[in-house]
Design a protein around this nucleic acid. Sequence first.
DNA 1: TTGTACGCGTTATCAT
DNA 2: ATGATAACGCGTACAA
Lengths: 357, 357
Amino acid sequence: MSLDRPSELQAGDARAPRQQPATLRDVAEAAGVHATTASRALNPKAQQLVNAETVRRVRRAAEELGYQPNPIARSLKTSKSSTVGLVIPDLTNPLFPPIVRGIENVLESAGYSALIVNTDNDPQRERALIESLRSRQVEGLIIATALLDHPLLQQLQQQDVKIVLINRRIENLRMPFVVGDDATGIGLAVKHLAALGHTRIAHLAGPQTTSTGVVRSRAFRHAVRDNGLEEDPALIVECAHWSEEDGAGAMRELLDRGTRATAVVAGNDLIALGCYDVFADRDISCPEDVSVVGFNDMPFLDKLRPPLTTVGVPHHELGAEAARMLLDSIDEPERYPRSLLLPVSLILRDSTAAPPA
Amino acid sequence: MSLDRPSELQAGDARAPRQQPATLRDVAEAAGVHATTASRALNPKAQQLVNAETVRRVRRAAEELGYQPNPIARSLKTSKSSTVGLVIPDLTNPLFPPIVRGIENVLESAGYSALIVNTDNDPQRERALIESLRSRQVEGLIIATALLDHPLLQQLQQQDVKIVLINRRIENLRMPFVVGDDATGIGLAVKHLAALGHTRIAHLAGPQTTSTGVVRSRAFRHAVRDNGLEEDPALIVECAHWSEEDGAGAMRELLDRGTRATAVVAGNDLIALGCYDVFADRDISCPEDVSVVGFNDMPFLDKLRPPLTTVGVPHHELGAEAARMLLDSIDEPERYPRSLLLPVSLILRDSTAAPPA
DNA sequence: TTGTACGCGTTATCAT
DNA sequence: ATGATAACGCGTACAA
């Protein structure tokens, strides 16, 4: 049989580059098959249903036309968007970029991408943003804004929205999460300070509306007891937010209470930064007068004066694992929800030393 | 079977709670009109074509059913994805989060969202990622990775891809950009140092493959001349990357050349951070021995020792303006490409002082 | 002012 | 092994 494919014609075609991107039909036509067949030939999962020779013809045509499947049409048909939503408080908090990159790494290799939204810790905003994410047909949600009491999340779970919590968890809901081992981290910090000779150690706790806040302060109280240190309630101050400003406020409160603490375990690095601010104001020197330990090991802490001792959390891995879990739960919806506790480590710098004599 | 559904809540209308999200047809049916009419009633632009009373009925039905238009179907029809691509080198570089938030702010209020990709400055990766973005039908691209010689961008422009450059520009291509006023910023820095009494001022230049690198070092040379300072080529060292590591390398080079500079204008904050590292190693004190000025005012610079004097760039605004420009050029494709130069300001902290006597 | 009919590009389902 | 047909949910000429 003689296929008429005069080479001149091809040259002519090439001269007139398609403005419109090639569609599946174009490919099918070029390969002399029906669109359905072309679809199968191009789809690895259905490829086996079609003649090997045909597959080659189709693929070749696709190649030549620079065919790119239209993911929107595909989504409409399959109601899968290859997209997941990522809900964080604020991208400019240095804690999150490494998490995001970890997530995107994993997503990318699975052909997924992430839609990121920032809630600024505003529940109204969070609700609206999640709604918009859902209307964009995200296949699942990775959420970093979980509160201990979070009706919205509960509601989403009832609607069978696939969710993985990151960095924070919810205790009573059975919802998969990926977090750092906060309790161990705080234990390490307290033990380190105790070994240095501190006996009056304070804790600037994070908001008790979050699991991280609660877990860390509970771990703090246990560690104090385990190390035989002074258990003075006045040594614990709660911050309303995980912010430098609130950290400073709590530090001032601590000082004004006259607790004579010689060391402070901050709920996180931002809170520790707040301590630094107060030290500067009040002419307190760290670590000579007061030692400080942070939590998270966010970037550039080694450039502070003094470089901040802190608990290192593998944020990139946290993100990667959360993404993997979400993809798994999309693939196998019935799978029992797992959760992960990633190991942390104490990072010694110069903000901790023996207490003043 | 017992679905746990709060009976009071839905008592009124929805006897059969939809599992499937409501579609336009559902709304139309509920309102007793045809889908077309419902579509028009819901679409602000076509709303005027329909009876006010009907509009109310439709809207009410939509409200009650919790109708959310399916953006995928809409995209397929209109071939608009309401999505733009954002191409940055690395989200963990603190420079970018504020830019991203600025972009998302504007996008959000226009019903758009951003797909973010990190190139890690790898051209291969960049090409692949942009391709994947395009296959996701993004309506435009905001690009922060532009190099002076960037064939890919040129190629995209020829394909009529809508692009706005941010933070960096390309001089010969006519492509809209939004950048800070680098030249003025450097001028401010040099003038400040000159006023302090410095005469031998060094410049640790950023990569000359980027417009920012080139513009800043050109501005530096001009400023040195304008202020009547010493024009010694040995006082300028180029960094291969905008990184702390390269900054440290360049600082060492400068020291080893024996240039006896009393101040350095770093290409950006990261490079300035590299200087701090070298100072620590070599027992040089800043600002007593050497003054340093950074560029960008990334977060937490005020916590360094010493707090870094730098040039503040309005990153959030940069992002917002770039997003606006992109949306504009999507709306009005024929509009002449604008570009924006946003004002910067010198932020005085403690890393600059008079030269040693 | 409202309704009809069709198509966006793809895939699922059935038939051949 | 391949083809025909319908449908995903929406928007829009065109008709009424």
